[in-house]
Design a protein around this nucleic acid. Structure first.
Length: 297
DNA sequence: CGAATGACCTGTGAGC
DNA sequence: TGCTCACAGGTCATTC
């Protein structure tokens, strides 16, 4: 489900509930998601206070008061839901449409404190491609999942020079090169398609052709770097994209799906002014790519 | 080394 | 109605 804008939207929804709050208990309805949950997971979390809830790429990082970090990834179908204590006291809680309580795998119970609250944060994930890990204090920058990530697309130092260095000599198509989290952190299938459309670049184009022989960026790379930043920034502002699932912890829908230029628009007209092209769907690296063959070169 | 492929899971919608 | 198939926002391990 979630790419960077969706994960950031989840973070913003959860932060007011989790930051500064103390975990009273953790309920595990399953002890394996994509990987087995960490050893002594419940005991290591009980009584811990969440100091900050951060995001890196598509990871959520809950920093705890003992120096450990709870790292969470939503995979394809993971989502968080906030159950407030007042809601629990009244009518039985109603699951948002399409969410089955059978897939509520992890439930964090928070202690009621001076800031009111209490209540629960529930992790639901039908496909169980998501996972949670506990990182010790020193592992935060060295853990393999985090160490190799590329720059954040917004305010992370992403620019044409970086992309030129990264693409030099690579024969993979742009689509694959950009899906690789070591290139730019947090991009996924939707936003790669959208950024390439904005930059008028074909997803099939060989990445290395955008770097000059001397390693300098071609002019088109500046356009790509800014297209990536812009699409991610706009999507975060819109609360992400909601396709088949709710994304936000408060149950509200993201809105960016209404602004897709190409994603899931196979056979529809290209939205670029003056372009008479038709959006095409092809498969690359086993995933759907949407693009306009007329104006994306 | 980089590139391509399969594997991991469940749910949903299209087509018959 | 009910079956089968393709496909879904990700990424890790394996193979070439």
């Amino acid at each position: 489900m979630p790419e960077l804008p969706e994960v950031e939207t989840v973070r913003r929804g959860l932060a007011p509930v989790m930051e500064g709050a103390t975990i009273e208990a953790v309920e595990l309805n399953r002890k394996d998601l994509r990987f087995p949950l960490p050893h002594r997971f419940r005991a290591r979390l009980a009584g811990r206070r969440v100091v900050a809830l951060r995001r890196r790429a598509k990871y959520l990082l809950a920093e705890l008061d003992d120096g450990t970090t709870l790292l969470m990834h939503l995979g394809m179908s993971g989502s968080f839901r906030i159950d407030r204590r007042d809601a629990l006291a009244g009518e039985a809680f109603r699951h948002p449409r399409g969410k089955d309580a059978a897939h509520d795998h992890v439930v964090f119970h928070f202690r009621a404190g001076h800031s009111g609250g209490g209540g629960r944060v529930v992790y639901n994930d039908p496909r169980r491609f998501g996972f949670m890990l506990l990182l010790k204090a020193g592992q935060r920058d060295t853990h393999p999942f985090l160490a190799g990530l590329g720059p954040e697309p917004v305010d992370g130092g992403l620019d044409a020079t970086y992309l030129a260095r990264r693409f030099a000599g690579r024969s993979a198509p742009l689509k694959a090169a950009l899906l690789d989290q070591r290139t730019v952190a947090g991009l996924g299938n939707i936003y790669v398609c959208e950024a390439l459309w904005r930059a008028r670049l074909s997803p099939r184009r060989v990445a290395g052709t955008l770097t000059k022989a001397n390693g300098a960026p071609t002019a088109r790379l500046a356009g790509l770097a800014s297209a990536i930043g812009a699409v991610i920034e706009e999507a975060v502002e819109a609360g992400g994209s909601s396709l088949r699932d709710y994304v936000r912890a408060d149950g509200e829908l993201g809105l960016f799906q209404h602004r897709f230029a190409v994603y899931d628009r196979e056979g529809k007209p290209c939205l670029r002014d003056g372009c008479r092209g038709m959006v095409r769907r092809i498969v690359q690296s086993g995933r759907s790519t949407f693009f306009c063959p007329l104006c994306q070169r």
